[in-house]
Amino acid sequence: MLEFQNITKIYKSKGKEVVGVDNVSLKVNKGDIFGIVGYSGAGKSSLLRCVNLLERPTSGKVLVNGVDLTELSSKDLRTARLKIGMIFQHFYLVSQKTVGENIAFALRAAKLPKNRIDARVDELLDMVGLTDKRDVYPGQLSGGQKQRVGIARALANNPSILLCDEATSALDPKTTLSILRLLKDINKKLGITIVLITHEMDVVKEICNRMAIMQDGRVIEEGEVYDIFASPHEPLTQEFISSVVSFEIPPAILKDVQGEIIKILFKGSVAGEGVIADTMQRFDVKGNFLHGTIEYIQDRPLGIFLMELQGDSQAVKDAKGYMEERGAIVEVISHV
């Protein structure tokens, strides 16, 4: 398990102190995939780099499996870092070395016996789907292939934690999806804990189980990804969610609305049921769909719909009550 306890990181710039991370406490369970989301300058990269003490916290503790890394000697810290792999946005491969040599470098640094290095390199290349690229140089690879080499290198010493610093930001959407699926597969097969930082909610939706939103060095919201998508509380979180699930209704449509506009949220299996159709048949109301979608988060459906309800006030009230009895969450957006 990874735990941040009251982590603060203060930088000094031109004689002034700048707070990069402000008293953050988080727990990441063993084997989880945890996303840290925020805009540039939110403090997410600084926090991530505190895990392996590439950035040493000004105060607070970083515990990995109960051991506070901030209290380790230099020798013990070097040993601990071998169990914390890291992949980066810009890959950082050595261009003069082949793919195999790039991966082998991490193994030699960990003093793995020479007679085991070749076999381990082959194993890692097979894991990331690059068995035919061992003797190729990075300049001959696509961006996605370079990141696969970066992942193989990060996994070389069988880490228990894998840190991903905007690992897909330089990739196109199709390649991003393939890298995320690879990370998810690695997490499942190896049980490795993955912590990734990103500003892309599509990435979080695709791979993460839990997430935290950072703003101005602080965590402002944290929880299960599904629950945060279903009910974001903070304005910044709502802004991030809207980049994936947008419900802007054109003013031209709104001016013609004659009833009550409601937002209907269906969680889990309820999203696949015909609740709205049953409601329209059961009650003397007319429904007009304005917007709607069903998102799949960790294979769980989340249905979100905006619609106009027309009818007398009691019928509309009864219809909303029925939908809530069926498991929907109903929110009134506006009255006419």
Rank of each mutant, 00 (worst) to 15 (best):
R181D: 15
A106Q: 06
I197H: 11
M127H: 02
E123Y: 01
Q140F: 07
I220N: 04
G129S: 07
E101W: 02
R181S: 14
N158W: 01
D165P: 01
L82C: 13
R108M: 12
Y137P: 06
T98H: 09
C164Y: 04
E222W: 08
K146E: 06
R153D: 09
R116G: 05
S95R: 14
D122Q: 13
I151K: 03
L163V: 06
K97Q: 13
L125H: 00
R108G: 10
M86R: 04
V99D: 04
L183S: 05
G191V: 10
G217K: 12
I194L: 00
A110Q: 09
I213Q: 10
D122A: 13
Y92F: 15
L171W: 00
Y137V: 09
K146Q: 14
A104I: 07
I161C: 01
D165T: 01
S169M: 08
D172N: 09
K83G: 13
L177R: 15
R153H: 11
M201Y: 08
A212Y: 02
R120G: 01
R210Y: 10
K133Y: 09
Q147N: 04
C208H: 02
M201L: 15
N209T: 15
N102S: 10
P138H: 11
K205Q: 14
L141V: 06
G85V: 02
K174H: 11
K188M: 13
N187E: 03
L107C: 11
A106F: 02
E221N: 08
L130R: 00
I161A: 06
K174E: 15
L82M: 14
T198H: 10
A167N: 03
L190S: 05
I161K: 00
I161F: 01
